[in-house]
């Protein structure tokens, strides 16, 4: 488990980039999605989520979830998420979205520890940066497409990691700057700490 304060900061930041949508919608590739950019890979996966009726908050049945899922799946992909609302009757409550997010973050935490065995010892800023990277890229792409970034992280060379962290367009510049600045802040804190050490 990751500390509550870190989880809260992560949720705030990742929500600003991925949105927070209570109903099902299609992402730009046509995958059914909900909450904070959480992909629903199949109808079966959707039926495991605690959807409720938008108006009454009454628990939805498997059949009702199937109706919403099928309706969304048949829409054109790549529209803004709010455009899909009219095709749905069900939502996830904010508590359910938060639980889904927490489950994903805990899974990413396990994956980050596999990629970087000393992850839990890294400064908070570095952890925040790595969570943002893995939430966006998935473990496989973070591991394979950013070799020099990973090397810099393992060497605790946060300044170099900041330089190597930049992702190509479709990632807004402010998100790239956010990750870069987290790593640069860690580098500055590290160098101040070294200066203070007698």
């Amino acid at each position: 488990m990751i500390p509550g304060a870190l989880a809260k900061r992560l949720k705030k930041q990742i929500t600003s980039y991925e949105g927070n949508v209570s109903h099902m919608y299609l992402d730009s590739e046509g995958y059914v999605t909900v909450g904070i950019g959480s992909l629903i890979p199949s109808l079966k996966a959707a039926q495991k989520l605690p959807f409720v009726h938008n108006k009454t908050l009454k628990k939805a049945t498997s059949k009702e979830i199937q109706q919403d899922y099928t309706k969304i799946k048949s829409q054109p992909k790549g529209k803004y998420s709010f455009k899909y609302k009219k095709y749905t009757k069900l939502i996830l409550t904010q508590k359910s979205i938060d639980n889904l997010f927490a489950t994903q973050i805990n899974q990413f935490h396990k994956e980050l520890k596999l990629l970087y065995p000393k992850f839990d010892l890294y400064p908070t800023e570095v952890k925040m940066a790595l969570f943002d990277m893995i939430y966006n890229l998935g473990m496989s792409k973070l591991k394979n497409l950013f070799p020099k970034f990973n090397l810099a992280i393992k060497q605790k060379n946060w300044k170099e990691a900041a330089k190597q962290s930049h992702r190509k367009p479709t990632i807004p510049q402010s998100r790239n700057n956010y990750v870069k600045n987290l790593l640069l802040n860690a580098a500055t804190s590290n160098s101040n700490l070294l200066k203070q050490t007698p």
Partner: peptide, 13 residues
């Protein structure tokens, strides 16, 4: 080209 990644939210056109 539409890019997608497994286990992440990244996609690009």
């Amino acid at each position: 080209i539409n890019d997608a990644v497994e286990g992440g939210t990244y996609s690009a056109t």
